[in-house]
Nucleic acid binder design. Structure first.
Lengths: 297, 297
DNA sequence: TTGTAAGCGTTATCAG
DNA sequence: CTGATAACGCTTACAA
């Protein structure tokens, strides 16, 4: 009765009384028993590549907020940027605790029949995808640079193999043709050494796949005495909190990470409820212009 | 039998055969049924104030790694810096999914008999606590500043009410007596406006309760044209990734957030296993000296 | 409107 | 060493 399925079967007075008594005694339905009986755990798993990256923290918060509202619980799986762990981790989830999966840049062993939503992946796969409008993001960034008068633009790309980064590269190529490119890892230190090579290229502006990569470029530029934006304009992607506090503040593509997480959860909830969910949903992005971009010298 | 409780009751050959068949058919024990029968879900909940803060991301990763090794699952609850949500959120957990709680700067309704570990809280409460050696952290920072020759030191304190911040203030007071203090919120923008007031004080160095607060101070200093460390030395706390990329790189107290998370999980696991756990465990910290500190002008 | 009973998939116990 | 059986706490269907 406490599950709310009593529609009109019992009197309001009785219901009231029972609820009061339940509250009085501190009664809590046993979720394990309910899960066993109904086959539904009201819990979803979120798989992220690196929870240490603040971007995923925001996605997680969005998903968790939405989940909480629907009285779902979210269990976190952090792949730790280590693809080897991925299979094992996801495998563990399939064993049961989760009704469905929110997969951020992760794949499922093919044929595994499970409810899942993929985040920031290419559409056309087995599961619905929810993603950022990456193409619009690079368009905004490139338009801004082009308007400023830059013609020699470089690309500091992520060396993490994920569709979202392929999309960035493809869009840049489509707009500008081949451009000087370096691949950088997702840490300030690593990105710094990788990005240093970009300073030897003949470019007046660079687009970075992510703010962290831009941070690495800042480090390299500082070490080499190249001034931003005087000698080099730089634009990042994600608008992480620290972009604001860089010197100079970073011009970057702002994305709604929490919204992305929340949207992914809603899609999964809809799927679990048997509703049909669109094969692809994309979140708009915008450009936040700060002080790291200026006309070329 | 698959639960491994068959110690010598069946032959190795039989066991082998059964396991093979199980793997063949893709059999997975149903966790809900197991949880119902055994009363144990092999799952713990981690409650954090703000998952958006990279510090908690690191704690979460540490806890998750340790949990995964023990084949536990961790469910996340993000309070969102909103104390009002806290009770409701924790309440939801008590309903069942979690065998135990990892409470970061959170309290449990008193008397709630549950297995829990408190992180970064004052010892002496109902549950064992695991925390950073905050006192040593401020000692390191203060010693460093004192050695540099600073005598007029200010304190940018967190306005978030948590024992760890009380500890910092108490230690500073014990070492230096009353010092100019401003309270700042946990965002760059908010901290910037709060920290601006510190620039009007007669101080040559500032200790910040957290790197984020230090970032706010950087912003205020930049706006007012005060140079770091020329006019003002600043030291932060936590050694978040972005501390490295600030200009100048921030001198800060480095803490092992992942280790903290892992330690907290182990303590909880021990508690769950019926082992006794020490009422207080503290993690050592160290000072990372970078370029935001120098002798007073 | 209310009561009763079956069964979800495990694990544990107790005879065989 | 093996096989049958009860019980965990809940939901649901059906009988009263």
């Amino acid at each position: 009765m406490l599950s709310g399925k009593a529609r009109g079967r019992i009197s309001a007075r009785t219901e009231e009384a029972v609820r009061a008594a339940a509250a009085e005694l501190g009664y809590r339905p046993n979720v394990a028993a309910r899960a066993l009986r109904t086959g539904v755990a009201r819990s979803v798993a979120l798989v992220v590549p690196d929870i240490t990256n603040p971007f995923f923290g925001r996605v997680l918060r969005g998903a968790q907020r939405a989940a909480q509202e629907a009285s779902y619980t979210v269990v976190l799986v952090d792949i730790g940027n280590n693809r080897a762990w991925e299979a094992a981790s996801v495998e563990a989830l399939l064993a049961g605790p989760a009704d469905g999966l929110l997969l951020f840049e992760a794949d499922l062993p093919p044929g595994t029949s499970e409810h899942a939503i993929q985040i920031e992946m290419a559409p056309g796969g087995e599961f619905p995808v929810v993603r950022l409008d990456v193409e619009a993001g690079v368009d905004h960034a490139l338009d801004h640079l082009l308007e400023l008068g830059h013609t020699k633009i470089g690309h500091v790309a992520s060396n993490f193999d994920a569709p979202t980064f392929d999309l960035r590269a493809a869009r840049i190529a489509a707009r500008l043709g081949p451009v000087p490119t370096v691949m950088a890892p997702f840490t300030f230190e690593g990105a710094k050494v990788a990005a240093a090579a970009m300073l030897d290229e003949d470019v007046t502006a660079v687009f970075c796949d992510d703010d962290i990569l831009a941070g690495g470029l800042y480090l390299a530029a500082r070490e080499r005495g190249v001034s931003i934006p005087g000698d080099l304009s730089v634009v990042g992607f994600d608008d992480l909190d620290f972009a604001r506090v860089l010197a100079p503040p970073l011009t970057t593509v702002a994305v709604d990470a929490e919204g992305l997480g929340a949207l992914a959860f809603s899609a999964l909830a809809a799927d679990l409820a048997g509703e049909s969910v669109p094969p692809e949903q994309v979140m708009p992005v915008s450009l936040t212009v700060r002080e790291s971009t200026a006309p070329p010298a």
